[in-house]
């Protein structure tokens, strides 16, 4: 396994080097400014770090965390509730499904009109997106719990709340975790979209600002930051999942 990984790393590095070299070469040709050059992007990133890139990253990350902290638990709680109560599910799930069919990007202008230019509309947008994802996962998770496991605990004398805590909740945890895994990239999209509409700070704002000045290098640099952010966030969730769901093989 380790040997196989090592074998793959070398060709990977070669491939990456080749791609970057041809990009660099193409960037020096006529009209090269439209695709910029890796070297220029690296230099620009250095300048951006000096000019307070960390504040933009903090703003975007803050919007993502605050939005997740609101939308995630709310979605999970509603999902667990509807999963337990068929009556509530029958009543509310059509509403949730209907609201979820709105492409959330289309809500961004509304959010900005309601909540202004600060971070609040972005937080609300992230919260909305993650709410629906977490809701559907928690709801399906409760419904997917093996009935036999609950019966088994019932026969041992468990009270309804004990059966819920010891069987339904841990059973749904795997679903909730996989919900979080898909919610995090969406949270990043939500925050970025919000920032691109109208904002004073944030990485999405950096993208639109550079684009409005036809500054291709700036656009690529901001996109690179978004990519790194996306990777770091996804890896963090995957790591948490592996730790929490050790029993899954």
């Amino acid at each position: 396994m380790a040997a196989a990984l090592k074998d793959v790393w070398i060709p990977r590095a070669v491939l990456l080097a080749l791609a970057l070299a041809s990009w660099e070469w193409a960037g020096h040709s006529a009209n090269g400014e439209w695709i910029s050059r890796p070297s220029a992007i690296v230099i620009r990133l250095g300048e951006m770090i000096g000019a307070g890139l960390h504040i933009d990253i903090a703003v975007t990350l803050g919007e993502i965390s605050a939005g997740l902290a609101i939308g995630g638990p709310a979605g999970v709680l509603l999902g667990l509730w509807l999963g337990r109560s068929p009556l509530a599910a029958g009543l509310l799930s059509p509403v949730v499904v209907a609201l979820n069919s709105i492409p959330f990007v289309a809500l961004a202008p509304l959010m900005i009109m309601w909540f202004g230019l600060g971070v609040l509309p972005k937080i609300v947008l992230v919260a909305l997106v993650t709410f629906f994802i977490m809701f559907f996962n928690a709801y399906s998770g409760v419904l997917a719990v093996d009935r036999d496991l609950i019966d088994g605990l019932w026969l041992m004398g468990a009270a309804p709340d004990e059966a819920f805590r010891k069987v339904v909740l841990p059973g749904a945890a795997a679903w909730i975790m996989s919900g979080l895994k898909s919610a995090v990239p969406y949270a990043l999209i939500g925050a970025t979209v919000g920032e691109m509409m109208l904002a004073r700070r944030g990485i999405g704002h950096l993208v639109t600002q550079a684009a409005s000045q036809f500054d291709m290098t700036g656009v690529y640099a901001a996109l690179f930051v978004l990519m790194v952010l996306g990777i770091v966030l996804s890896e963090a969730v995957a790591l948490t999942e592996a730790r929490l769901l050790r029993w899954r093989k």
Partner: peptide, 8 residues
């Protein structure tokens, strides 16, 4: 079918 809880 054994009904052991897989997470325990």
């Amino acid at each position: 079918k054994d009904t052991l809880l897989p997470w325990r």
